[in-house]
């Protein structure tokens, strides 16, 4: 799709920025119903720009790339809500699906996720200052309620700024990559690399779920059964 045809109007941009704020809040602050997971946020982003399936594909790949970063305790982990939304939008806005657009969208999503992680870290430091005087807060508990709600509002603002700031550059980057012709060798190389990266993510991500190497019997079983079922089909 030519860059001039990308349908990202100011109104849509504002809607997406606001949505990014909601998704950022869902990731950690409230209510954590997982609309911030990439398979949801990227699908929503893709759907709003006309390609829900493309958004879901990007979201699923992002999901597997980030699987080995669960939100344990104080660990930093990718902020997948705004990241998925941006990646899904960038993929859908960039024209006819291609391996180049897919790779660019996934990379943009991954980088945005980690930028979100570091802004989330900064937010937690700000929270420490907001909630830093327990005796003062206890003297009038309404202060605690106001500060707690302010902290959530700051998280939402963080998501809005992150999404609003990165959305247009991300769409442009992926679109520019999309208009560049990728030859047969390049496509084969790209496909091989993506599928191998997917496999590497699967293996490393499985460690967060499975207790030991017996997991591989089940992974292999699932893969082989599906391969057998799909063999020979287009």
């Amino acid at each position: 799709m030519p860059l001039t045809e990308i349908a990202l109007t100011p109104a849509l941009w504002a809607l997406l920025a606001g949505l990014g704020g909601l998704l950022a809040v869902d990731g950690v602050s409230m209510p954590q119903v997982m609309i911030s997971r990439p398979i949801v946020s990227a699908t929503i982003g893709g759907a709003l720009l006309g390609d829900a399936a493309g958004g879901m594909l990007v979201g699923a790949l992002l999901e597997l790339l980030t699987m080995r970063h669960p939100p344990y305790g104080a660990a930093k982990y990718p902020d997948t809500g705004p990241a998925g939304l941006i990646a899904g939008c960038a993929y859908a806005a960039s024209g006819t699906p291609s391996i180049a657009i897919l790779v660019a969208a996934v990379l943009v999503g991954w980088m945005t996720g980690w930028m979100g992680a570091y802004t989330g870290y900064a937010r937690r430091l700000v929270n420490g200052r907001l909630i830093g005087r327990p005796e003062w807060l206890a003297a009038d508990p309404r202060r605690l309620e106001r500060r707690h709600r302010s902290a959530i509002a700051i998280d939402a603002l963080r998501g809005v700024v992150l999404t609003g700031g990165l959305l247009v550059p991300s769409v442009l980057i992926v679109s520019v990559v999309g208009v560049m012709p990728v030859g047969e060798v390049g496509t084969a190389f790209g496909s091989a690399a993506v599928v191998t990266a997917l496999a590497a993510s699967i293996g490393s991500g499985a460690r967060t779920t499975a207790p030991d190497a017996r997991a591989w019997a089940m992974v292999l079983l699932g893969a082989l059964l599906v391969l057998a079922a799909l063999w020979g089909r287009p």
Partner: peptide, 20 residues
């Protein structure tokens, strides 16, 4: 979960190959 991981890998890989 591990079974689904194997299945999802192949299905996603097929989608990626279709994109290319």
């Amino acid at each position: 979960t591990m079974f689904l991981l194997g299945a999802a890998t192949v299905l996603l890989g097929r989608e990626v190959l279709a994109t290319s």
